[in-house]
Amino acid sequence: MKLKSLLVGLGLLAGVGAAQAADDPFKVGFVYVGPVGDLGWSYEHDRGRQELEQFFDGKVETTFVENVPEGADAERVITQLAKSGNDLIFSTSFGFMNPTLKVAKRFPKVTFEHATGYKRSKNMGTYVLRTYEGRYVSGVAAGMLTETNTIGYIGSFPIPEVIRDINATYMAAKSVNPEVKIKIVWVNSWYDPGKETDAANALMDQGVDVLLQHTDSPAPLIAAEKRGMRAIGQASDQSSFAPNAHVFSVRDDWAPYYIKVTQEVMDGTYEPKDFWGGFSEDMLSLASINDNLPDDVRAKIDETYEQIKSGEFKPFTGPIMDNKGNVVVPAGHSLTDTELAQVNWYVEGITDAIPR
């Protein structure tokens, strides 16, 4: 769907910039945990920033700070952006949550939006993508493609988003391949090509032949390409790095949300809330599905995508057991967004323990 069409659907084209004087650009700041060249998470956030500027055509001025560590450094950077006259600030990593909240309390006239968190205030909202939808489709593909019945997952940090996505991947793989196992390696980093390469090779050494990741560089895809394995891209279209290994990439598109929130703040209609976007909002998509996939795998990918996009199927619908034998999702219940944000358990069949 074209961006303009999507924005029409969200009611965003009326009164663009009406609340902002033509000679006084509305200022928006962005904080990234990685480099804009990571070709993953931060890269796509920055693409959204650029589309935001293009959409408002001179009425909005943006700035960004990249490679910001989560913690005290983040608070200093966010504070500086607020002091520099930014009207709206987007902080785009889970570890920025508490620093953003602290700064928001000190600058009540500035609007803050935090990605993937759960804490809000009068001038701070939260937003996240339903990445688990993409992981579920990825798990279906991985479960069908594996010849060793062993898929691998490279995790960044054991936060609810990542744990939730690992669960979605494994449940999906299990739905098409009851014999499948999943091996998980944690790198404790969002972006570290060296660690990601080592993790990918360690998993493949253990019999993994399909790799998935919740890290931001294309390094795992490159490693899979070198060893004749399969891998799925993270956050942006990473197909060019592994023409044979690449199954597809789950691409994030933040632009519609950045435009929507900016317009609301400019118009004075903004209210902080918890926003979730996914397939149905065209903010999550499957990029560059490989032509070398078997026909039955491609058909199942398309079918699963359409079922999730239409709302016919919701991945976290019970009954679901955790790997300790507890019912975590009762039969017939689909996890609410609040419940999804609190997932701290592995589903039945995952033999690992969640790092603490």
Rank of each mutant, 00 (worst) to 15 (best):
Gly9His: 05
Leu13Gly: 02
Gly15Tyr: 06
Gly15Ala: 11
Val16Leu: 13
Val16Ser: 06
Ala18Leu: 08
Gln20Leu: 05
Gln20Val: 15
Ala21Ser: 14
Trp41Glu: 07
Trp41Ser: 09
Trp41Gln: 08
Ser42Asn: 11
Glu44Ser: 15
Gly48Trp: 02
Leu52Ala: 06
Phe55Ser: 05
Thr62Gln: 08
Glu66Asp: 11
Val68Gly: 03
Glu70Cys: 07
Ala72Ser: 15
Asp73Gly: 04
Val77Lys: 04
Val77Arg: 06
Thr79Leu: 03
Leu81Gln: 15
Leu81Ala: 12
Ala82Pro: 00
Phe90Thr: 01
Ser93Trp: 11
Phe96Asn: 05
Asn98Ile: 11
Lys102Leu: 12
Arg106Gly: 01
Lys109Glu: 14
Lys109Met: 03
Phe112Asn: 04
Tyr118Pro: 00
Lys119Thr: 14
Lys119Ala: 13
Asn123Met: 09
Met124Ala: 15
Leu129His: 14
Arg130Asp: 14
Glu133Trp: 02
Tyr136Ile: 02
Gly139Leu: 02
Asn149Met: 10
Thr150Cys: 11
Pro158Thr: 04
Pro160Ser: 06
Arg164Val: 09
Ile166Asn: 01
Asn167Ser: 06
Met171Asn: 03
Ala172Cys: 01
Ala172Asn: 01
Ala173Asp: 10
Ala173Val: 07
Asn177His: 12
Pro178Thr: 00
Pro178Ser: 07
Lys183Tyr: 09
Lys183Pro: 12
Trp186Tyr: 14
Trp190Asp: 07
Trp190Cys: 06
Trp190Ile: 09
Trp190Gly: 05
Ala202Gln: 15
Leu203Phe: 07
Asp205Asn: 12
Gln206Cys: 06
Gly207Trp: 03
Leu211Asn: 08
Thr215Asn: 04
Ser217Arg: 05
Ser217Asn: 02
Pro218Ser: 06
Ala224Gly: 14
Gly233Cys: 08
Gln234Pro: 00
Gln234Arg: 12
Asp237Ala: 05
Ser239Lys: 11
Ala242Asn: 10
Pro243His: 08
His246Met: 04
Phe248Ile: 01
Arg251Asp: 13
Asp252Ser: 13
Asp253Thr: 07
Tyr257Trp: 14
Tyr258Asn: 07
Ile259Ala: 07
Val261Asp: 03
Val261Phe: 02
Val261Ala: 06
Val261Tyr: 00
Gly268Asn: 08
Glu271Asp: 11
Lys273Phe: 10
Trp276Ala: 15
Gly277Asn: 14
Ser280His: 13
Met283Pro: 00
Ser285Asn: 11
Ser285Glu: 13
Ala287Tyr: 10
Pro294Ser: 13
Val297Ser: 06
Val297Lys: 09
Lys300Thr: 08
Asp302Cys: 00
Thr304Ala: 08
Lys309Cys: 01
Lys309Tyr: 04
Ser310Tyr: 11
Ser310Pro: 13
Lys314Asp: 10
Ile320Lys: 03
Asp322Gly: 10
Asp322Thr: 06
Lys324Cys: 01
Val327Lys: 10
Pro330Phe: 00
Ser334Met: 10
Ser334Arg: 12
Thr338Lys: 15
Leu340Trp: 01
Leu340Ser: 12
Ala341Trp: 00
Val347Gln: 05
